[in-house]
């Protein structure tokens, strides 16, 4: 499979200045990050607040460019200003707050906003809008006002808005942080569906462990560095290491780990309820 995203030594600093413009302090948001994502992958980036995961997401969308190092998305260097629009089109982004990323007052018009910006002809916009609204199950709501939708529905509209630009990749920056459990479920299943059916590369940034178990690979970030990476099962086998970094493992994994600590012979890295149940049944 093709290399879709390639990041090498990406470093980014936020510089705080006082009123006279003197440097007060430097916060290194990204510290020599390497990232490799294959086309069609489902990647999860985990980390506590301030770990640099959102900054990394903004780099993939070319909203920010690395201060040193480089980042290549679909063969295009994000440093090159001529590629900015093309990169934003191939790697669409969904943000945390559902209200602050919906531009129009009618659902279908909001989904059409992206295609309008990249100059898609009118008829084509309509087919794209219909298709992407159907792909997230929001076609029925096309004439509604976004203000009347639930958080999960708004996020699905935002995803449709990105899909209408025909991207190869979607970056979701904590898309479920402001949603209730039902909304979270809605958004996640829509995302997984896009990944499976349409082969869209997904980069899911989150601090909910449960959301990452379906990913192909997980990157764990802390203070601007990627500290762990691997398959979910590998990552969640290292329960103690995760705890050292103040990251909680999924509840089921934690329970299995605790049981194992107290003497049951369970395998490492149990991710789902069903797995745990069948393992426990095998014991008795």
């Amino acid at each position: 499979m093709d290399q879709f995203i390639k990041a090498r030594n990406v470093t980014f600093e936020y510089i705080r200045r006082d009123d006279d413009g003197n440097v007060e302090g430097i916060e290194t948001a990204l510290d020599k990050v390497d990232l490799d994502v294959k086309a069609g992958d489902f990647i999860a980036i985990l980390g506590a607040n301030g770990s640099g995961k959102s900054t990394l997401a903004k780099h993939i969308n070319a909203l920010l460019t690395p201060e040193s190092g480089y980042l290549i998305v679909d063969g295009k260097d994000t440093h090159n200003k001529d590629h900015t629009l093309a990169i934003r089109q191939t790697a669409g982004m969904v943000f945390q707050n559902p209200d602050n990323q919906i531009i129009a007052s009618i659902v279908e018009e909001d989904v059409g906003f992206g295609p309008e910006n990249i100059g898609v002809p009118t008829d084509e916009i309509w087919t794209r809008v219909e298709k992407s609204l159907r792909s997230v199950g929001m076609y029925h709501y096309r004439h509604h006002s976004p203000n009347r939708l639930s958080g999960g529905q708004k996020q699905r509209v935002a995803i449709a808005g990105v899909m209408a630009m025909k991207p190869k990749c979607i970056i979701l920056d904590e898309p479920t942080a402001m949603l209730d459990p039902i909304g979270r479920q809605e958004v996640l299943s829509a995302v997984r569906e896009l990944n499976k059916k349409n082969g869209i590369t997904v980069i899911l940034i989150t601090h909910y462990m449960e959301e990452t178990i379906h990913a192909n690979r997980i990157f764990v970030m802390e203070s601007g560095k990627v500290i762990m990476q691997g398959k979910p099962r590998e990552i969640f086998s290292r329960v103690e290491e995760l705890k050292d970094h103040h990251l909680a493992v999924p509840q089921v994994t934690e329970l299995a780990w605790e049981l194992k600590q107290s003497g049951l012979s369970l395998p490492d890295g149990i991710l789902t309820k069903e797995e745990l149940i069948s393992e426990l049944c095998r014991l008795s």
């Binding site: 903004k58 909203l63 934003r88 943000f95 602050n100 059409g112 906003f113 910006n117 002809p121 309509w126």
Partner: peptide, 24 residues
């Protein structure tokens, strides 16, 4: 909110009125 919205608009390729088509 304005800051967030500006970023979301940029991420969706908004770059002013030039070269823009209309859905309606």
């Amino acid at each position: 909110r304005a800051n967030d919205l500006a970023m979301a608009m940029e991420a969706r390729c908004y770059h002013g009125g030039d070269g823009r088509t209309k859905m309606k």
